[in-house]
Design a protein around this nucleic acid. Structure first.
Length: 142
DNA sequence: GCCAACGTTGGC
DNA sequence: GCCAACGTTGGC
């Protein structure tokens, strides 16, 4: 099982909307590196939900429910999307500023590749972030 | 609102 | 194939 981070601008799609929808297709990715990450996802993988631009914090966790399939919003047919769902809010959202000042998270792609919208998270970093976010264990309560 | 990072486009 | 111009993302 792998861990990921998904970015979304809350003005276009917020975690509150995610909680309302329960499940959604993660469409609109138009960057090849991000698309390759989508292709590597497996059902059961978990992903942090990060609010970019407005908020700049990790606000929750979602589960990957379906492997990559063609994104109908892409006319070229090259880009893909996955289905995500089962949103769980973070007891304590983790701000970007806090992430930046945590030595164990120094190598997060979030800090190094600020424009990448879908990125992998290492198991150790996942654990650190879950702890910071107020989850009691690595397993997320549902 | 500004600007850095970075991807894409198009002229040569 | 190189590189300048331009557009977009996202932090500040």
């Amino acid at each position: 099982m792998a861990y990921w981070l998904l970015k979304s601008e809350p003005d276009s799609y917020s975690f509150a909307q995610m909680q309302h929808d329960r499940r959604t297709a993660w469409s609109g990715v138009r960057n090849h590196q991000a698309a390759n990450n989508l292709r590597a996802m497996q059902p059961g993988d978990l992903a942090f939900f990060y609010h970019s631009n407005t908020g700049r914090e990790i606000v929750g966790v979602v589960e990957i429910l379906r492997t990559a399939y063609p994104d109908p919003s892409d006319a070229s047919g090259k880009f893909v999307m996955v289905d995500v769902g089962k949103p769980v809010p973070m007891p304590q959202p983790i701000g970007l500023a806090e992430i930046k000042t945590t030595p164990a998270l120094r190598d997060l792609p979030l800090l190094k590749q600020s424009r990448l919208s879908v990125m992998p998270i290492g198991g150790r970093e996942w654990q650190t972030l879950c702890k910071m976010g107020g989850f009691k264990t690595l397993g997320v309560k549902r």
